[in-house]
Simulated assay, not measured.
Amino acid sequence: MSAYEAALARQSWSKVTGDGPTHEELVRLVAAAGRVADHSSLRPWRLIELRGDDRVRLGKAIAKAEKDRHPSSKPMRAPVLIAVVASFQKSSKVPHWEQEAVAAGVAHTLSLLLDEAGWGVFWRTGGYTRSKPVAKAHGLKKNEELLGWLYVGEKPADRKPSRRKSVDAEAFISRMPSKKQ
């Protein structure tokens, strides 16, 4: 499958089941995803792999962030969660927004690669991604921000992926305004 075909075929799987990719498979895919455009090669990102009880601890941290007495069940909706972290580096040339874009690019590329490998993927975010309890649970440093999680698992045979509407590309492409305006 070409990159073009992979991008056109990409779908979100809001429910995944069963097993997830092995650590070894993730390492292989992350090595490819990490080749996104990265000004000054800062590599301002890292990923945290959550499996088993890691997901329970995350559920408790989300509950604490939301001031809920019961642990959130959201992290249990997939066998593997991959936390996407923007890990900002000091740079006079590369602003924070650009470094965050690199981290998001790695996450998106990884989601395409996971999909191509046959896994169902859903990128989950929420207000609690930037909360202190969730940051603490992930061991984030002061120079880091959580962008969300890739939920990864088997695609259920009885479900269809979430449908994405086609993009009217012409509506999103324009030319630079002329001087006369």
Rank of each mutant, 00 (worst) to 15 (best):
I82Y: 06
A83P: 13
T125G: 13
E116G: 15
G118E: 07
Y128Q: 06
T125W: 01
S73T: 13
K165F: 00
A101V: 05
E145W: 00
T129H: 04
G126Q: 02
L81I: 11
Y128F: 13
D115M: 11
P161A: 09
A137Q: 13
F122Y: 15
K93G: 05
A107E: 15
Q99I: 03
V121C: 13
L114R: 11
G126N: 05
A107G: 15
K132Y: 01
V167T: 14
G105F: 02
E144P: 10
W119N: 09
P95W: 01
G139F: 09
A135L: 07
R124I: 11
E100T: 03
W119I: 10
S111L: 04
Q89C: 12
K74M: 09
W123C: 10
W123P: 14
Y151M: 11
V152W: 02
V121E: 14
V94E: 05
A107T: 13
Y128K: 03
R124P: 04
K141S: 14
A117G: 09
E144R: 07
G105Q: 08
Q89Y: 01
P75I: 08
A157I: 05
S92Y: 00
F88E: 10
F172K: 15
V121W: 09
K90A: 12
P133F: 00
K132Q: 12
K141G: 14
K160E: 14
W149S: 07
W123F: 04
F172A: 09
K160N: 10
L150N: 02
G120Q: 10
S162K: 15
D168T: 12
Q99N: 11
W97V: 11
I82K: 10
H138F: 15
L150Q: 03
A157M: 06
K160W: 01
K165C: 01
T109G: 13
A86P: 03
L147Q: 03
D115G: 15
L146H: 14
T129K: 06
T125E: 08
E100Y: 01
A157K: 12
F88L: 15
A83M: 10
L150M: 04
L81A: 11
E154W: 02
K141D: 15
P161M: 07
L146N: 12
K136P: 08
F122K: 05
L110S: 11
A135D: 07
G105I: 09
R164P: 01
R164N: 06
N143S: 15
K93Y: 02
S162L: 14
K165R: 14
A101Q: 11
Q99F: 01
E98L: 05
G126K: 05
H96V: 06
G139L: 12
S73L: 08
R164T: 03
G120R: 09
H108G: 07
K136G: 12
Y128M: 02
E98I: 03
W149T: 08
A83T: 11
